[in-house]
Amino acid sequence: MTASVDNDKALCLDLCDAQVPPTAELRRWIRTHLRGLGEEAGYDLQLICTELIANAYEHGSMPGQVRIEPAGRDGLRIEVDDSSTRMPILRRPPPDSYRGRGLRMVEELCRSWGARRTRTGKTVWAELFDPSGDKDRLTAA
C-alpha cells in the first residue's frame, strides 16, 4: 500500500499490492492522516471505508485506490476504485442472512453515496458529514 496527499488535498491510498483487503492498515491510515474529526465521525469514516474496500475486493476486481477529500464546508468524500464495471446493488437480505448489509450501513451513515463508471471500471463513493468543518483536516503526516 502506498499513501500520499495530492495537490487537491485528497488523501490517496493505493491498494494494488494488497492481495486481501488491508482493513486494519486502512483504519490506522485514517487515524494518522485525519485530525480534528470527532470521535463518532471518525468511527463512521473508518467503517464506511472498510466496507467500500471490502466490497471492491469481493465484488470488484483489482482494487485500485482509496481517496478521502473534503466535500464542501462540512463533509468528506470517500472514493474507492476497482476494475469491475458491475455496479453495486443495495440489497434487502432475509433476516437470517449473515451477508448483504454493508451498503445499507453505508447508506445510513452517509448523507449520500453512489457509483460511476470509469475508463478502467468504476468508482464507488460516499459523502459523510464532518462536524469539524476543518478544511485542513487531511495531513501528510
Rank of each mutant, 00 (worst) to 15 (best):
Thr2Gly: 12
Ala3Arg: 07
Asn7Gln: 11
Asn7Thr: 07
Asp8Leu: 12
Lys9Thr: 12
Ala10Gly: 04
Leu11Met: 09
Leu11Asn: 03
Leu13Arg: 10
Leu13Cys: 08
Asp14His: 09
Leu15Asn: 05
Cys16Tyr: 01
Cys16Phe: 03
Ala18Arg: 14
Gln19Ile: 10
Gln19Gly: 11
Gln19Arg: 15
Pro22Ser: 07
Pro22Val: 11
Pro22Ile: 11
Thr23Glu: 13
Glu25Phe: 03
Glu25Ala: 14
Leu26Lys: 10
Leu26Val: 13
Arg27Cys: 12
Arg27Leu: 08
Arg27Glu: 14
Arg28Trp: 02
Trp29Ile: 11
Ile30Ala: 09
Thr32Ile: 04
Thr32Gly: 04
Leu34Asp: 05
Arg35Pro: 05
Gly36Pro: 09
Gly38Lys: 10
Gly42Asn: 11
Tyr43Glu: 15
Leu45Met: 06
Gln46Lys: 12
Leu47Gln: 13
Leu47Glu: 13
Ile48Val: 15
Ile48Ala: 09
Ile48Asn: 04
Ile48Arg: 02
Thr50Val: 08
Glu51Lys: 05
Leu52Gly: 01
Ile53Phe: 00
Asn55Arg: 06
Asn55Asp: 10
Ala56Glu: 02
Glu58Asn: 08
His59Cys: 01
Pro63Arg: 09
Arg67Trp: 10
Arg67Lys: 13
Ile68Met: 01
Ile68Val: 13
Ile68Gln: 00
Glu69Val: 06
Glu69Ser: 08
Pro70Asp: 02
Pro70Ala: 13
Ala71Asn: 02
Gly72Cys: 04
Arg73Ile: 02
Leu76His: 03
Leu76Asp: 01
Leu76Asn: 02
Arg77Lys: 13
Arg77Trp: 06
Ile78Thr: 07
Ile78Cys: 00
Thr85Phe: 05
Ile89Trp: 00
Arg92Asp: 00
Pro94Gly: 13
Pro94Asp: 14
Pro94Lys: 13
Pro95Ser: 03
Ser97Val: 00
Ser97Met: 05
Tyr98Lys: 13
Arg101Ala: 01
Arg101Gln: 03
Arg101His: 09
Leu103Asn: 04
Arg104Trp: 06
Met105Cys: 06
Val106Tyr: 00
Cys110Met: 05
Ser112Tyr: 05
Trp113Ala: 02
Arg116Glu: 13
Arg116Thr: 03
Arg117Phe: 03
Thr118Trp: 05
Thr118Val: 10
Arg119Lys: 15
Thr120Tyr: 03
Gly121Arg: 07
Lys122Val: 00
Thr123Phe: 10
Thr123Glu: 13
Val124Lys: 06
Val124His: 03
Trp125Gln: 06
Ala126Lys: 05
Glu127Pro: 02
Glu127Gly: 06
Phe129Asp: 12
Asp130Ser: 06
Asp134Met: 02
Asp136His: 12
Ala140Trp: 05
Ala140Tyr: 02
Ala140Pro: 01
Ala141Ser: 11
